[in-house]
Design a protein around this nucleic acid. Structure first.
Lengths: 225, 225
DNA sequence: CCAAAAGTGTTCACCGTACACCCATGA
DNA sequence: TCATGGGTGTACGGTGAACACTTTTGG
């Protein structure tokens, strides 16, 4: 550990950047912001910004997310720190990357955002050219999301407080990019014992209504296996 | 994303800290350094130090590890970034934490280090009081190590280029803290097809010699499952 | 010949997977 | 009545876990 003259060292700038995932229109999508200023003016980039001197890293990511997109109170997890010396042409900038999962019903004014032509949702498989190393950050975030879906219950973060098994299955199918057997899926999910019926039915159109479920113990949104 | 006047923002100091694990004397141990200067003078802390302005984060962790402990060329992986505003009494310091795995045969002069009374190995279950939030960092590192042992082949990072199945089994037993069935272990490991016999035998004392193994494809030290 | 680690197979329980039909509803 | 998604059970194969004895060596 270095001695106490640490303040003599030159310091990098520090930002947080957030990969915000949601499920829209049957696709895994993420939120990007079009840069108004150089460098990379006009290109798309992740929401994020500089750390305030008195805020925690998590708090910074939360704040930037709220300021730039209006989203708050969602699942947020630190992903990785990116620090290639040449990743920002302005100089040395370290980015602590996060990813967030937003349920579709909590998206902020989706059409207004599109109209403004400054904030937009993109399917992960059809991204525009990206500023900085944000493509790398997104790739790692998607990889982590897919991995965690298999051994945790974060899938529920894409849904409202009550949901149907069909909705939950769709989350898995869209994120993993493959269709699943309905009977096996239901058996597996219910065997975990993490969710229970609310007793209500959900009318989803002109078809048979589906049972509503909720999380049994909202406090511990932990690892499944 | 913020505009180009980022240099007006105040900046935190940035360090890397490294949790160096090894297996010694049948225990999972890690390397600590006794702090000579305030804050926390006399307490034990992780090796680490400040980022140079032109080096990558990974490179910084490598360099600090080599400078402070003489260890190089070992497995090193970014763990998490710690940034609580009050984690360092000197001011705002963000630490990008790493963990390293060192095979016992590559430990640097173990007795000299102990003699110097400044660098020492401690069993993870018998740690001294720690400076800063290094206890939190270590806890997360150990958790990650145990998790990765189950779904990756990092266990091999604790061993030399050639090894016996008994040695490999010991790695799992020590890190996981439980004894394993020999037949099931060997069946499972060999079924992965990642290692092969060298054809040599290893004489380990006055007992039956064990077969030596090596990694089949050193290039891809990847995920098992 | 004795102590100590190396090496070897089989059985069983459980879990993930494959697979097809009826039900309830609104139009 | 029909189109659409909701809801259900069984059979099979593979995998992980339990379990004990023989082999080889040095002292």
């Amino acid at each position: 550990m270095a001695s106490s003259h640490c303040y003599e060292y030159p310091r990098p700038a520090l930002t947080t950047d957030v990969v915000v995932f949601t499920l829209r229109e049957q696709h895994l999508q993420l939120l990007l912001i079009r840069r108004a200023n150089p460098p990379h003016a006009g290109m798309w980039a992740l929401p994020g910004g500089f750390l305030d001197m008195n805020e925690d890293l998590d708090r910074c990511a939360q704040r930037e997310l709220a300021e730039e997109t209006g989203i708050s109170g969602v699942y947020l997890e630190q992903l990785y720190s990116f620090g290639r010396p040449d990743r920002d042409p302005r100089g040395r900038v370290i980015s602590v990357a996060y990813f967030a999962l937003v349920p579709e019903h909590r998206l902020p004014e989706p059409h207004a955002a599109s109209d403004a032509a400054e904030v937009a949702w993109f399917p992960v498989n059809a991204l525009p050219p990206l500023a900085f190393d944000h493509g790398d950050i997104i790739a790692m975030a998607q990889q982590r999301l897919v991995a965690k879906l298999a051994y945790s219950n974060i899938a529920l973060q894409f849904l409202a407080e009550t949901f149907t098994l069909g909705e939950l299955q769709q989350v898995y199918e869209i994120v993993q990019g493959e269709s699943l057997d309905k009977r096996n899926f239901r058996k597996r999910i219910l065997a975990l014992g993490l969710i229970e019926e609310t007793g209500q039915l959900r009318r989803t159109g002109r078809h048979r209504p589906a049972r509503e479920y909720r999380i049994k113990h909202p406090q511990r949104m932990e690892i499944i296996k």
